[in-house]
Design a binder for these strands. Structure first.
Lengths: 212, 212
DNA sequence: TTGTGTGAAACTTTTCACAGCC
DNA sequence: GGCTGTGAAAAGTTTCACACAA
C-alpha cells in the first residue's frame, strides 16, 4: 500500500462530520463527491482521491451511500472504539468544553472531571463526577482513562500533565497557553492555542489592506 | 518575488511567539536556527528557508538577534497594527476567551462584548463594556471594530454572523460548532472546531494500537 | 448523462548540500 | 568550528484528463 498523505487523513475527519450531518438533515440516500466537496469548500477530485487511497466506496453515475460511507470512514479512522476521556479543570474553559456539542459524540466520552475547588468536588456536571485532583491517579487507573484534556491555568498545566502521565494516560489535549512537551514517546501531546487563529486573521487583514 | 508557501507564513507566527518568550526568559541576545527549530520540534533548514523568503536576518557563525528578529517578523506579518475586536457571547466559552492569556497581547485588543443576558449588559469584564446585542451595529461602527469572535450557542451563530457582517466587520473567528460560510468576499471567516483535535488524538491512538 | 476511480502531470513544500562569512 | 543563506534535489500533495460503469 502506498503512503497516504497526512492531509488526506485530516480531511477524512471532515468528510465524516459532513456525512453525518447530511444523513440527519437530508432525505437523499446518496451523495456525490461534488456535493461533499462543495460543503467543505474544496474540489471533487480531492474527495475522490482521498477515498481512493482506502478502497472503492462509490458507484459510478450515482455517488456514495451516505450512511455506509460514514461507517467506512469511521472504521478507517479507528473511531469505532470509544475512548475514555477525563477533563482537568472546571473553570470557564473546562465548563465550556464539557458542554460543547460534539464532545459527547461517538467515540468521545468524558467519564471524569478533576478540579481543585472544594465547592465543585463531589458534584456532577452533565452526569459526570467531579473528583479532587488528589484522586486523579487512582480514578484514571480504575476507569482505564486514555485521554486527558487540560483546561487549567497556565501555571498549573505542567504539574497536571505530569500527574496525567504518571497515571498512564496515552494522549493529552492541552488548552493551557503554554507549550507542553515530554521527551517520552509514551504520551502524545497536542497543544491547542486559541489565540493563534486570531493572530492568523489579523495577519490576513493586514495583508489585504497592504495590497489594496 | 517568488511565491511564499502558506505554511511558511504560519510558521512565522510560531517563530515570533518563541522569540518573544526567549527574549523574556533567556539572557542570550542571539538565537540560532537550530535552537529555534528545537523549540518547535522542526528542523533548522526549515527555519532558515522560511526566513530567507523575506530577506537576510542572521549573521553567519552567530545566529539571529532575538529581539530584532522578533521585530522583523512582526513587520512581515503586519502585526504592528492593533486590530479592534469584539466578542459575541459571554457564556462559559466567551468568558474563557476574554481572560485567555494572549488575547490581550500586542495587536489583539477586545474593545466590546455583546451579550443577550440582561443581567450582564451594562457591566464590564476585564475593563471591557458589555453591550446588548441590539446595539451591535452601532457600537461596531462607532468604535471601528474590524474582527468579531463568535462564542454563542450553535443555533444563534448564523444570526450573529449576519449582524456582524451587516455592521461591516472584516473578519470573523467562529467557535460555535456550526460551519459558517458566506459567498461574499467581503468577510473572512475562520471556523475553530474544538472537538476536531480530540478526534485527531483518538485516531492517533487507534492507529498506534493497530500497529502494535 | 452523471459520476467514480486513477495514472500522470503540475505544483508545492521540505530536505539536502555546501559555499561563504564570523 | 559554528552558523547562515540558498540553489537544487527529493518528497509530498493537488489537479487534470479520461476510461469506464450505472
Amino acid at each position: 500500500m502506498k503512503r497516504i498523505p497526512e492531509a488526506s487523513i485530516h480531511r477524512l475527519n471532515l468528510y465524516l462530520r459532513t456525512l453525518k450531518e447530511l444523513a440527519k438533515n437530508s432525505e437523499d440516500v446518496t451523495v456525490s463527491s461534488k456535493q461533499l466537496a462543495e460543503e467543505l469548500g474544496i474540489n471533487s477530485h480531492q474527495v475522490r482521491k482521498d477515498l481512493s487511497y482506502f478502497g472503492k466506496f462509490g458507484q459510478r453515475g450515482i455517488g456514495y451511500r451516505t450512511k455506509e460511507l460514514a461507517d467506512d470512514i469511521n472504521k478507517i479512522l479507528g473511531l469505532n472504539k470509544k475512548w475514555k476521556i477525563c477533563l482537568c479543570g472546571l473553570g470557564n474553559l473546562g465548563s465550556a468544553l464539557i458542554s460543547y456539542r460534539g464532545f459527547r459524540k461517538e467515540g468521545l466520552n468524558v467519564v471524569a472531571v478533576f478540579e481543585k475547588d472544594k465547592d465543585k468536588i463531589g458534584k456532577t456536571i452533565n452526569g459526570i463526577d467531579v473528583f479532587s485532583v488528589e484522586r486523579m491517579n487512582r480514578v484514571i487507573r480504575e476507569k482505564n482513562i486514555e485521554i486527558g484534556i487540560i483546561a487549567v491555568p497556565a501555571d498549573a498545566a505542567k504539574s497536571v500533565a505530569s500527574q496525567l502521565i504518571d497515571a498512564g494516560i496515552k494522549a493529552i489535549l492541552n488548552f493551557a497557553p503554554i507549550k507542553l512537551s515530554y521527551p517520552q514517546e509514551k504520551v502524545r501531546i497536542r497543544n491547542v492555542d486559541l489565540s493563534i487563529e486570531l493572530v492568523n486573521l489579523a495577519q490576513f487583514l493586514a495583508n489585504i489592506s497592504k495590497k489594496s
